[in-house]
Amino acid sequence: MKKFLSINGIEICVDDTEEGENALLLIHGLTGDKTTMYPIRDMFKDDYRVITIDTRGHGESTRPKEYTIDDHADDIHEIISELNLEKADVLGYSMGSYIALRAAEVKCDDIDHLVLACTKPNGKTSSVARLLKEANLDITQVSQEEMMGVILKASLAPQSYEKALNGEFNIDEILNGEESYELNEEEKAAEDASLADFDNSNDYDKVKCKTLVIGGEYDGINPPELGREVADGIDGAEFELIKDAGHLAFAEQSEEFQKVIKDFLNQ
């Protein structure tokens, strides 16, 4: 069920399956929204109450002119509270993993399991902005088609890339979700600015919840060694490498991705 929550002075849109004893909150990646996380939602909805969200600045949520990763982190805890959850498992993908980790560094008493998929410890800007800059493209001016072309090469394992070129792998559907909530130039700039010079590596010691970090073998956006660095920094964290997958490991190797997370959540 879709609902709007009043969070920290703005409206946050969430989609809540509302069924299941344990709650799993999913946080999407850059330029994404709740619908881009539906493939992961569908992996777990039979066993968990799955909550997908539009982070501030995205989807159907309020789009402030400026915000920070700390604002995102505060929103996560408020969402858990507003939904009257004592605790939730939190899974963040790409940009969502930076938010999820920052939220856990703020406090862990309402987070049970933390899953960080395709993550990195810090960055001067978003990984996508870096790739676009290397391709001489401006994130605030680039078309969705141009952005997808750059992301495609960096996102996929070789065999997945070949399938995408042959039309066997619908990359647009995966990246754009079920509905279209594109950001305009100002909104893209605000999104990119929210990740400027973020650094989660200074507060690893504050993460007390059980943590799993997942990397994709061929991830050119957030290479797996960066995820391993995060796992090595968090006491007791596990690291799992998904073979023959890139940044879209959840789609390229969906069964393995699901199994690794289910095994972890069932600990």
Rank of each mutant, 00 (worst) to 15 (best):
D71I: 03
I53T: 09
V142L: 01
N122S: 15
A251S: 15
L30I: 01
G20Q: 00
K107S: 15
S94T: 07
G233N: 07
E18P: 01
A196V: 07
V142K: 12
R130Y: 11
V50A: 10
T68D: 13
D74T: 09
D46C: 03
L195M: 12
L226E: 14
G246D: 05
V14A: 04
H77I: 08
T31E: 06
V106H: 13
D47P: 00
E168A: 00
G167K: 00
Y181E: 02
K120L: 09
I111G: 09
M43W: 01
G236R: 12
M1N: 12
E60R: 14
D109Q: 15
T119M: 10
K188E: 02
L226I: 00
M147K: 04
K153M: 15
D47I: 01
S81K: 14
E86P: 00
G246E: 08
T31N: 07
L5D: 11
P39K: 13
V90R: 04
V260C: 06
N184V: 02
F264L: 06
Y98L: 11
T211S: 05
A100K: 13
F4C: 02
A73Q: 11
Y38C: 04
E238I: 08
N22K: 15
E256D: 11
G9L: 11
K206D: 05
E21Q: 08
K163Y: 00
S94F: 14
P39G: 14
Q141M: 08
I234G: 04
E134Y: 00
E217A: 14
I151G: 03
L195N: 03
E178P: 02
A193R: 14
E185G: 00
K133S: 15
T55S: 14
K259M: 14
A251Q: 13
S160V: 05
V106R: 15
D42Q: 10
L116K: 03
D203N: 15
S94D: 14
Y181Q: 02
N136F: 10
L132S: 08
T140S: 15
P223R: 13
Y38T: 11
I242V: 15
L132Q: 09
S194N: 02
C209M: 11
K188I: 01
T31Y: 04
G246M: 05
D192R: 09
K45M: 13
L226V: 07
A164Q: 13
Q253R: 09
S94I: 06
I214H: 04
E217Y: 11
A164V: 06
F4L: 10
I51C: 10
E78T: 10
N122V: 04
T68I: 10
E179H: 02
V207G: 04
K243D: 14
S201T: 01
G216R: 07
A104I: 06
K243N: 13
G96H: 05
Q144E: 07
K243A: 12
E86Q: 05
V90Q: 05
G167N: 04
G29V: 03
S201P: 01
E173K: 12
K206T: 05
Y48A: 13
G92I: 00
D197G: 01
D47L: 02
E182G: 12
F250H: 11
E18D: 13
S160A: 15
E60N: 15
K124T: 12
N176D: 10
L101H: 10
Y204S: 11
D197T: 07
A100H: 14
H28L: 08
T52M: 13
F239D: 11
E178I: 03
I261R: 07
